[in-house]
């Protein structure tokens, strides 16, 4: 576990010595604020709990930005051959996976946390339910972590960052779209019921929406942690398989 910490610190400082992390965080902040104050109609609807004006946009941004954060996690390591260093140092594959994943998650956490001025703003302007807002932040971070874990899994398959980016964005877009309201209504006209059910449970909205509204449901946490754990375990399996 000490090596996991060393790997975590190295990865995190790598994010911030390259422009990647800054670029992603700044783009996220600009876009989320722009969307909140334009299409989100933040002032007009007086949405003090930030549900529709603010949190609503997070999955749409994360489906593009989380893959950008995670695309290099293992593909770069395989392209430059540093995986051979990592694989021959006295550490386990799990320490490496956990260290790297947490470093990427920290970048995402920074992006989400840096939106705090809007939280201050709603507290100045009105009387929001801060627990609901916290729950929204939690849900938003979990969505981001889920996308990140899937990206990590994809990055284990390829040594090419661009391929990893494209494939992971495709998966994340699918997860956002397939349970989105309009899309589901359209689909339920033609598709069989089981397919619609499957789409709903595969997509993020069912699970994110309840957190966005301040409802802590066990099933949502199970869903998020299952997806994240499954991706991490998958990553370890793929990396081991590619080495033998």
């Amino acid at each position: 576990m000490k090596t996991a910490l060393a790997i975590y610190k190295r990865e995190l400082s790598a994010y911030f010595t390259r422009p990647t992390a800054y670029a992603i965080i700044i783009i996220f902040l600009i876009l989320v604020m722009a969307l909140t104050f334009t299409f989100g109609r933040f002032f007009r609807i007086g949405d003090a709990n930030l549900e529709y004006s603010f949190f609503f946009w997070h999955p749409w941004l994360f489906m593009l930005l989380a893959p950008a954060v995670g695309m290099g996690l293992w593909s770069d390591e395989q392209r430059t051959g540093t995986i051979e260093l990592l694989g021959t140092l006295p550490t386990t594959i799990w320490s490496a996976i956990v260290g790297k994943y947490l470093a990427a998650a920290t970048v995402c956490l920074a992006a989400v946390a840096l939106t705090f001025p809007i939280w201050i703003t709603v507290n100045r302007l009105g009387e929001p339910d801060n627990l609901t807002i916290f729950s929204g932040y939690l849900g938003s971070f979990l969505v981001c972590c889920t996308f990140l874990a899937l990206t990590m899994l994809v990055s284990a398959f390829t040594r090419d960052q661009v391929v990893c980016l494209i494939v992971s964005v495709a998966i994340c877009v699918l997860m956002v779209l397939c349970s989105y309201g309009d899309f589901v209504i359209e689909a339920s006209k033609n598709a069989p019921r089981w397919l619609v059910e499957a789409m709903l449970s595969f997509g993020v909205w069912d699970h994110f929406r309840s957190l966005m509204r301040g409802a802590f449901r066990l099933q949502d946490f199970v869903w998020f942690t299952t997806l994240i754990m499954a991706s991490l375990i998958g990553t370890s399996a793929i990396l081991s398989a590619r080495r033998s």
Binding site: A14, T17, T80
Partner: peptide, 8 residues
């Protein structure tokens, strides 16, 4: 191939 972390 003498792999190294290029960002360090």
């Amino acid at each position: 191939s003498a792999p190294l972390y290029n960002d360090m």
